[in-house]
Amino acid sequence: MHVQITDLEFSYGKASNAVVQNFNLHMNEGEIVSILGESGSGKSTILRLIAGLETPSQGKIGVGKDTYVDDQSGKILPVEKRGLGMVFQDYALFPHMTVGANILYGLNKWKGPARRARLQEMLELINMTEYRKRYPHELSGGQQQRIALARALAPQPPLLLLDEPFSNLDAHLKHRIRDELRETIKYTGTTTIFVTHDQEDAKVLSDRVVLVDKGEVKKTGTPYELLKETTVPQGIGGAQA
């Protein structure tokens, strides 16, 4: 298994209610998994735990040959050593850097010519070569999203994390970008975890859907298996399957 997450548990401060509990997820390389749940279900926290932005109170996280978290040995790999790619809900493109500098940011350990080649490759991948010298505020929401994806994919991460990447986009734009996103991810073969509250997004984008409620996995299956049923918890937005 490429991604192995076992018995993950997390609570904020000294609060007794666990935000995430007993969370297990195993993924094959190249697989796209959606974590689907309503707001407050703990799905974004799961992503932050995998990224290393929060520390779990218990559990194991391993990706490829690396162990990120192991509660037996007490090992916690710092966030910057994990080498993951993450696309934030609001993209978090550095506003004081150009598109090119944003994409190059994660490639600081690469050699000069390889860096330049990778930048060119990423810009071509997202069809934005002519935007290299633009600043984030000069781009539309959809373009910013593509840059954020390119920035996350550039260092060839073993796992890509997407946190509600369509929430800032208009509905008509979303459909096109969603298809593009799946195409790009599949083209690069990157293993991806995608967090969303929208069933339609989960259906279109993912190979497998994990339904989460109160920080626990309620169901898991292919989008077709899972979303044809009508047992999705109330309050989950998006088009009905």
């Binding site: 990224a51 966030v79 910057e80 994990r82 993951l84 993450m86 934030f88 978090a92 550095f94 920035r151």
Partner: peptide
């Protein structure tokens, strides 16, 4: 958010501070 983005892109907290936080 920006610091977190920088950390996930492989920068330590000191580098993140000088390259992302301080300029912003």
């Amino acid at each position: 958010r920006y610091s977190e983005a920088s950390r996930t892109l492989g920068m330590g907290w000191i580098k993140t501070f000088f390259k992302v936080d301080l300029p912003m």
